[in-house]
Design a protein around this nucleic acid. Structure first.
Length: 693
DNA sequence: TACAGGATCGCCCTCTGCTGGTCCTTT
DNA sequence: AAAAGGACCAGCAGAGGGCGATCCTGTA
């Protein structure tokens, strides 16, 4: 493709659309019928591809089927039909039989998938040049039609001599058919800067039908000899009512041609064949299906194929009454009932009903052969359907729409799984605790974490934290160890950090500091609220007033205690009684100490006025009681460190909380005992255990 | 006609990772 | 008491592997 580009349209190429150069005007009706039938009877896969190929293609199809009035404007309309074509050149890398991958100059890879007979649609105005109006239809999920519309044709060289040992052949071909070197320029409109994708190829342009027939064999022979990609440009009229031209581009030396006819080749063959069978290359008979594009060189295959277009299924399964077209199919089916699996794997103990299943199994498990390769990444799969599913992760296509919400899935199973969120179905049950789950994986994790032994733990690499789940460790890392561009300032000093964990560790160093210092005395405390309460001992402020008796308090908790004791009829203070002598105590530890002296050695909680509490309730009560005592002790202690006024208030509080018999003694003693209980690590659980004995 | 093998659709599974609610601890 | 923060946990979706079943075609 080193030829100099001709910036203007090639005269020769332009002539293609000129009516006077259209010998196909004279094509037989029969042949045109063939072309139309071709378009009408797409295979399911083609139909699917057509559906996926988007609005413009739809419009193109519409244009094809709609009668085109022969107005002067419409008469300028031409349809350029691009049949299955695989471009290969230095600018184009053919990935597989169905994917056309075009490498752009800037390295951005653009993939065009051949989706059945592709369509190039061009519409020409009287004074407008051809290249402005050609559009290429490609699969929407790969390349939106709206994004990539404009295609320019440049004939780089006309009457090109392709390197060939057979100079006579090349000469003959060039003279009669017109070998041209063509460049297609695809313009992607979606990109901000319209970038061009260049595709170059050689083509043999047939100027007339006679030359076309005469030179097909020559071009094929030439294609065999040249290593350059060579395509066959064939012109024929599309619709006689409009001035339509159908231009067929066929690959002459693609791999596909050797194996089986492509859609385009089938089309070319059809255009030159009679209805069902036609001599090709002067020797072999080819049988063409009327209904679809199937062709075969064997009568038996052709006859068998024709049965696929009927609903005839004469072979009945006596077990399920399902019917099948052939005995083989029925036998395979019956084997699924009987469990007969004649195809056994040599490398493992698996066995299968069909040979195909065995081959696939061997690829998955033993040979690891993955013939279906993604052109956009390194993914490869054993099955085409897996590649198709994978490609959706590139394209974002989600064909499976939930009927109850906006969710759409990339495959059927995910939609089915999603539907459980609407139905509430939980098909997976833990065999131990019978908890139910929507997904098996969730249940598996549950069993492992809740009921499993040797549960794996995940150690944070940056701190001592050990977390049960990997995903939670990731959250931990993100929250605590991720670098923060913003400065994280210490609440207590001017230190600055960029990692939350470091900040938290640093702030802990401030933990035991009594940062709040009284301006009026030597009192200092760790918490601001304590300082606020303390300051009131200097100011005399008592902002908490009892609504029942108007008595005022400096702290809210003092008001609460007061209210419960004097104004709440339902309040029943907790009393621990010695089971030996019946003496009551406000604290279990005091009662326990007493009962040891009493000689019983056993202490029972003598209720707190409400019998029959559950263990949990008791635990809560104890915990609250301990917390209350702890808080009170702390408050008193801190207050006592202030001045006499504070000590007096603490004393008041003490008397209010433990009146009469329940009064455990002097303030200092109470504080000391509470501290002792806490320091000794007497937990609620321990207390409960002791009580339950 | 039987068989091999490719193609296709469907189903189910596992692994992975994110998210938000809950519980518990700390402040 | 309330707020904040972190670990725990279930819910849920993405991606991919593997197999079952069927259909169809090429070929011996």
């Amino acid at each position: 493709m080193a030829a100099t580009e001709i910036s203007v349209l090639s005269e020769q190429f332009t002539k293609i659309k000129e009516p006077e150069l259209m010998p196909e005007k004279g094509l037989k009706e029969e042949e045109k019928d063939e072309v139309c039938r071709e378009k009408d009877h797409q295979s399911p896969s083609e139909l699917e591809a057509a559906c996926a190929s988007g609005a413009l293609q739809d419009s193109v199809l519409e244009e094809e089927v709609e009668p085109v009035p022969a107005t002067s404007e419409e008469s300028e309309k031409h349809i350029l039909t691009l049949q299955t074509v695989h471009f290969t050149s230095e600018a184009v890398e053919l990935q597989d039989m169905s994917l056309l991958s075009i490498q752009q100059q800037d390295g951005v890879q653009v993939v065009v998938q051949q989706a059945g007979p592709g369509l190039l649609w061009l519409e020409e105005g009287p004074r407008q040049s051809l290249q402005q109006y050609v559009a290429i239809s490609i699969q929407q999920e790969l390349y939106s039609l709206r994004e990539m519309e404009v295609l320019q044709f440049h004939a780089l060289e006309e009457n090109v001599m392709v390197a060939s040992e057979d100079s006579k052949l090349a000469m003959s071909l060039a003279e009669s058919a017109g070998l041209i070197k063509v460049k297609l320029v695809l313009i992607n409109n979606a990109l901000h800067e319209k970038e061009q994708i260049e595709v170059g190829f050689y083509a043999v342009l047939c100027l007339d039908k006679e030359g076309q027939e005469k030179n097909q064999l020559l071009t094929e022979r030439l294609a065999e000899r040249t290593k350059e990609p060579l395509f066959f440009l064939e012109t024929m009229s599309g619709d006689e009512r409009s001035d339509e031209i159908v231009l067929t581009i066929s690959n002459l030396n693609g791999e596909e041609q050797e194996d089986q006819p492509t859609a385009g080749q089938a089309d070319v063959e059809k255009a030159k064949s009679t209805k069902n069978q036609r001599k090709t290359k002067g020797a072999k008979r080819t049988f063409h299906c009327d209904v679809c594009m199937f062709t075969s060189s064997r009568m038996s295959s052709f006859n068998r194929h024709m049965k696929t277009h009927t609903n005839e299924k004469p072979h009945l399964c006596h077990l399920c009454l399902k019917t099948f077209r052939t005995v083989t199919l029925l036998r395979n089916h019956v084997n699924t009932h009987t469990g007969t699996r004649p195809y056994k794997c040599n490398d493992c103990n698996m066995a299968f009903v069909t040979s195909g299943e065995l081959v696939r199994h061997r690829r998955y498990k033993h040979t690891h052969e993955k013939p279906f390769k993604c052109s956009m990444c390194k993914y490869a799969s054993v099955e085409a359907s897996k590649l198709k599913r994978h490609v959706r992760s590139h394209t974002g296509e989600r064909p499976f729409q939930c009927c109850q919400c906006s969710y759409a899935s990339r495959d059927t199973y995910k939609l089915k799984r999603h539907m459980r969120t609407h139905s509430g179905e939980k098909p997976y049950e833990c065999h131990i605790c019978h908890t139910r789950f929507t997904q098996s994986g969730t249940m598996k994790i549950h069993i492992l974490q809740k009921h499993g032994e040797n549960v794996p733990k995940y150690q944070c690499p940056h701190c001592a934290t050990i977390i049960a789940r990997k995903s939670d460790l990731r959250v931990h890392m993100r929250n605590l160890h991720a670098y923060s561009a913003a400065e994280l300032k210490c609440r207590y000093c001017s230190a600055v950090f960029h990692e939350r964990y470091a900040l938290i560790q640093h702030q802990k160093t401030h933990k035991n500091e009594k940062r709040f210092k009284c301006e009026h005395c030597s009192y200092a405390c760790k918490q601001e609220r304590h300082m606020t309460a303390h300051i009131r001992t200097h100011t005399g402020e008592k902002p908490f007033t009892c609504l029942s008796c108007n008595k005022c308090f400096r702290q809210k908790q003092l008001l609460n205690v007061h209210f419960r004791k004097y104004h709440d009829a339902n309040f029943i203070p907790t009393v621990y009684r010695c089971c030996k002598c019946g003496k009551g105590f406000s604290r279990w530890s005091n009662m326990h100490r007493h009962s040891e002296k009493c000689g019983s050695g056993e202490a029972k909680s003598a209720a707190s006025g409400k019998g029959g509490r559950t263990r949990k309730r008791k635990q809560t009560v104890l915990r609250e009681a301990m917390k209350g005592q702890k808080e009170a002790a702390k408050g008193w202690k801190e207050a006592a460190n202030g001045d006499e006024a504070a000590a007096e208030e603490a004393s008041t509080l003490k008397r209010e909380q433990f009146p009469g018999e329940m009064l455990p003694g002097a303030c200092g003693e109470t504080t000391a005992r509470v501290k002792e209980d806490v320091d000794e690590g007497v937990t609620c659980e321990m207390l409960l255990n002791m009580m339950d004995k």
